[in-house]
Computed example of a mutant assay.
Amino acid sequence: MSKNPDIPLQDSGSLSPGGDGPRHVAIIMDGNGRWAQARGRPRLFGHHAGAKRVREVVEACPGLGIEYLTIFAFSTENWKRTQTEVAGLMNLFRRYISREMAALATRNVRVRFIGDRLRLDAKLVKLMDRLEVETAGNDGTHLTVALNYGGRDEVARATKRLAHDVANGTLNPEEVDEETLPRYLDTYVLPDPDLVIRTSGEARISNFLLWQSAYSEYEFIDTLWPDFTAAELGRLCEKFGRRERRFGTVKT
């Protein structure tokens, strides 16, 4: 079933350059396993520590002017990890949602999930659906969790939905352009990210928000995710505000 093309996309541009911070921050939360192993603990210990860090970052967003926060929790490639780690992560997601549901609702956080839910277990999907419903009326920080998400997978699924609409006659193929496809993406109600942060010292985007981040600013930092703080997020937002974003134009 296609996304509703009648729902208008929000402006994908950022706040104007010259001292303004990012409206939408996306984070690749990397380094949990290495953080745990450096302490002689199993990888799942690091994932639990990383989950606690999410709360601090979410709570910091309003004070930093961040309206939208998108976090990469589990990729379509992460199924290749050991069965023990994957099972532990799925259990962690269930526990986190159950534990944080009330707090997110009272803090005026609206939660959305993106990614393919078909491979996730029914109990987890039920919790995800419930959290989305419970927070649907909130208009504070918009928290999007990418779970079983991959950028290429998202574009492929979007293309299938678009092709279905062309086939059944509800979409004219001559009208398909770069403004059309985003209406079929998982993120169709979100603005594009202004700033993408990757922790842990790796300098790659790992199949995250491929379409949406075409003009995002990137920060690759050495900090492992469990050590990432609201203060460091603030410094990165301040640094972003000093950048000049031209979106293909030339400064006059």
Rank of each mutant, 00 (worst) to 15 (best):
M1C: 06
K3W: 10
N4H: 11
S14L: 00
L15R: 15
S16H: 12
S16M: 14
G21W: 11
R23N: 08
A26W: 11
I27W: 07
I27L: 13
I27K: 07
G31F: 03
R34C: 05
A36C: 03
G40I: 11
G40R: 06
G46H: 02
A49L: 06
V54N: 03
V54Q: 01
E56Q: 07
V58L: 14
E59G: 00
A60T: 10
L64W: 04
L64P: 00
L69G: 01
A73K: 08
S75F: 13
T76V: 07
N78P: 12
T82Q: 10
T82W: 08
Q83L: 12
V86S: 13
G88C: 09
L89W: 07
M90G: 04
F93K: 05
R94F: 06
I97F: 13
S98Y: 00
E100C: 05
E100F: 02
E100H: 08
M101V: 01
A103K: 06
L104W: 02
A105V: 09
R107I: 00
R107V: 00
N108A: 06
V109I: 11
R110A: 07
R110S: 10
V111W: 07
R112M: 10
F113E: 02
G115I: 03
G115H: 04
D116E: 15
R117F: 11
R119G: 15
R119C: 14
L120F: 09
D121K: 04
A122D: 13
V125K: 03
V125W: 03
K126C: 14
K126G: 15
D129C: 12
D129F: 11
R130V: 00
G137D: 08
N138F: 15
D139N: 15
D139I: 11
T141R: 09
H142R: 14
A146C: 15
D153I: 02
D153S: 08
E154D: 12
E154H: 04
T159I: 07
K160Y: 04
R161S: 13
L162T: 01
L162Y: 05
V166L: 14
A167M: 02
N168F: 08
G169T: 01
G169C: 05
T170A: 12
L171Y: 01
N172Y: 09
P173D: 07
P173Q: 11
E175R: 11
E175I: 05
L181G: 01
R183P: 04
D186Y: 15
T187Q: 05
Y188E: 02
L190C: 04
I197H: 02
R198N: 06
R198T: 02
T199V: 04
S200E: 04
G201I: 04
E202R: 14
I205G: 00
N207S: 03
F208V: 07
L210H: 10
W211H: 10
Q212W: 08
Y215T: 07
S216A: 15
S216T: 08
E219T: 06
L224W: 00
W225P: 00
F228A: 07
A230M: 03
E232H: 08
R235E: 15
F240N: 03
F240H: 05
R242H: 15
R245Y: 13
R246N: 03
F247E: 07
T249C: 02
V250L: 14
